[in-house]
Simulated scan of single mutants.
Amino acid sequence: MPPAYLATAEFDPLRDEGIGYGLSLLRSGVPVELHQWPGTFHGSQAILSAEVSQRQLAELAAALRRALAE
């Protein structure tokens, strides 16, 4: 499987499942970049004025750039 980028939000009802999925991929030998964003909720990155949202979007863009450079 290709490398994976996973991001979970602290107050997302599916947070634990997302983290578990990332850990399962890691145990299977898949390279995984797993980010847990404290203080966030599902979809919170849509609030573009929030500093944490800006960091989330920058981190995602950086991960995409790294993946496309390979």
Rank of each mutant, 00 (worst) to 15 (best):
M1G: 14
P3F: 05
A4H: 00
L6D: 01
T8A: 00
A9K: 01
E10Q: 08
D12Y: 05
P13S: 05
D16G: 01
D16C: 01
E17G: 04
G18W: 00
G20S: 05
G20F: 00
Y21T: 03
G22V: 00
S24M: 05
S28T: 04
S28F: 02
S28E: 11
V30F: 07
V30R: 05
E33V: 06
H35P: 05
H35D: 07
H35E: 09
H35L: 07
Q36N: 11
W37T: 03
W37D: 04
W37A: 04
P38M: 12
P38D: 14
G39F: 09
G39C: 11
G39K: 04
G39D: 09
T40S: 12
F41Y: 13
F41A: 07
G43H: 11
G43S: 08
S44R: 06
Q45L: 14
A46D: 10
A46C: 09
I47P: 01
L48H: 12
L48T: 14
S49E: 15
E51K: 15
S53L: 14
S53A: 15
S53G: 12
Q54L: 14
Q54D: 13
Q56D: 08
Q56V: 15
Q56E: 15
Q56I: 15
A58K: 15
E59V: 10
L60D: 00
A61W: 10
A61G: 09
A62C: 06
A62G: 06
A63P: 00
L68P: 02
A69C: 05
E70P: 02
